[in-house]
Design a binder for these strands. Sequence first.
DNA 1: CGCGACGTTGATTTGCCTCAACGATTGTGG
DNA 2: CCACAATCGTTGAGGCAAATCAACGTCGCG
Lengths: 192, 192
Amino acid sequence: MELLLKNIGRQVTLSERDKKILSEAFHTKKIKRKQFLQEAGEPSKYLYFVLQGCLRGYYTDKDGFEHVVSFAIEDWWISDFGFHTGNTSIMTIDTLEDSEVLYIDKPTMDKLYDQVPQLDRYFRIILQNALMAQMQRIMQINSFTAEERYVAFQKKYPQFLQRIPQKYLASFLGIIPEFLSKLKKQLLKPAK
Amino acid sequence: MELLLKNIGRQVTLSERDKKILSEAFHTKKIKRKQFLQEAGEPSKYLYFVLQGCLRGYYTDKDGFEHVVSFAIEDWWISDFGFHTGNTSIMTIDTLEDSEVLYIDKPTMDKLYDQVPQLDRYFRIILQNALMAQMQRIMQINSFTAEERYVAFQKKYPQFLQRIPQKYLASFLGIIPEFLSKLKKQLLKPAK
DNA sequence: CGCGACGTTGATTTGCCTCAACGATTGTGG
DNA sequence: CCACAATCGTTGAGGCAAATCAACGTCGCG
């Protein structure tokens, strides 16, 4: 819980009362590796904040292929994008490692926004950053080759490289595992 | 200005005082067709709300190619994604038609957030929706062929089809104009 | 009218996918 | 602690969607 309060505190100032309300609104959950936190098709019930471990969010397309949309480690948020609007979820979230998360359901969240108005600002800022990150992702898909995207990922998220299987990284980059494998091979050789 | 207040009023309740403050914070600007509102590289100064007309936001990649990121017509927001964080802009915004916009600069906007706390919530909601739209765009790029994306665009934004040149639509869809041309041809024939 | 931007069409190329086979690594029950 | 299966990553041959390049028709506009 400390981790979350500290994270929020970086954007807005919380009173002791606010902190108490927040602490009571979130609950903790420990989940073993390879468990589902949420499955596509169900109503998008919870918003998650990661205290420990590594999670992955993905959707399954009309042909049955999974596409990884986001990874989350300590100090990150993860949820379906339908959470905020109350739609049924399109995303599945599962764990890549034994993990520990804070979670909150939508009714509680709505109450929270009224009780702690600072949260509107906090999430406005969080969403601004998320939107900018998404934007950069779209720009990369448009303008970069798969190889360039892989190199950029290495540079930007070195922490993830050890923690996530290649096939999920490939999916996140928008390619298939076989091709990522070939890219890596190519990147090693031309060191002449 | 009425249009903006009405738009905000759909998400949060504004007092008369709030409305007055808002009215004074935004200014109106009329721009002829094919003029620049903002150019990439400059600091991202303004946030725009469209009252009239049609605008386009795009960035220029390392090879000098333009990529259309968003269109905006009446009752829509448009801005660089750097606006909120105060970075230099990566996006260029120009007009596809004679247009009229409301605009606000960042310092004024920051003051506004403090004067009218409802705005934090309003933009939180706007950003949630924008994020979801971006998400769907990424999902389309991952899972749909160019033809499917074109058909989906036709269905979702019929209002735009008449107003924007094909080459910009192609760019928005992530393909080149020549290929869009071929797609349209193919879609006409197989009506057997 | 004539120029320049826009859209169309065709021939060729390429980045990435498909499918299939084969090591390597992980994990699980005996 | 080993045996065996399952999962994951690698490699190669062939295919396809979309890009590139180039040529040509057409429309709006000075």
